[in-house]
């Protein structure tokens, strides 16, 4: 895990607390596919009301990166089955519908993922929901058959709701929002 430590004379306890606030998806705790995972940096300095535990931070970061990897592959290959591992609820329903429509119309979408700067803002006291805001740098290419119909390359803001499952965190909601929509 990459730790951001503010060493300016803080107490040891404070150092430990700060140390748990930023995680990256390419940390040693990542999965075996970590090398191909999108780069995700999770900053939890502003999270509340519940503080985030170190292991939870690592897991959320890794699972969110894995979700994006699956999202990109499923939209490129029009395979809804790839959404089952890290998406649930509304997020999975919407992506499933999108892929189904793409398949019907002969379209596909390629995401070239240049990384995510994620801030964790809300973690419910019972640990049941975590809300994130993601500044994602993603190049999107739309294809109709072999023909490129559009390309965008911009920073896109996402409002994300993740919920815990038995052994992982799932993306339950993934909504693009205008830049000025959230702090």
């Amino acid at each position: 895990m990459t730790r951001t430590l503010h060493l300016g004379g803080c107490l040891g306890v404070l150092l430990l607390a700060w140390a748990t606030l930023i995680w990256r998806s390419d940390s040693p705790g990542g999965s075996v596919h970590a090398a191909s995972l999108p780069k995700v940096t999770l900053n939890a300095e502003s999270i509340g009301p519940r503080p985030i535990e170190q292991r939870t931070g690592e897991t959320v970061t890794r699972n969110y990166a894995q979700a994006w990897q699956d999202l990109a592959e499923s939209l490129d290959r029009n395979r809804t089955d790839l959404l089952n591992d890290y998406f649930t609820g509304k997020a999975r329903d919407r992506l499933t519908q999108r892929i189904s429509d793409q398949r019907k119309t002969g379209l596909r979408t390629r995401y070239v993922d240049h990384g995510h700067r994620v801030r964790a803002l809300f973690y419910s006291p019972d640990g049941g929901e975590m809300q994130l805001v993601d500044q994602a740098q993603i190049e999107v290419q739309g294809f109709d058959g072999q023909k490129t119909i559009y390309t965008t390359n911009s920073t896109q803001k996402y409002l994300v709701l993740m919920t815990p499952g038995a052994d992982r965190w799932y993306v339950r909601s993934l909504e693009t929002v205008p830049d000025d929509a959230t702090p």
Binding site: D101, G106, L107, D144, Y150
Partner: peptide
């Protein structure tokens, strides 16, 4: 083409005209 978070529309149109988009195509 209209590509949204949960919906894709593909249709033939005549350029130079206003294209009506149904509310059901922009629910998400």
């Amino acid at each position: 083409y209209l590509l949204g978070p949960s919906h894709v529309v593909k249709q033939t149109i005549q350029l130079g005209q206003d294209l009506p988009i149904s509310g059901s195509d922009v629910g998400a």
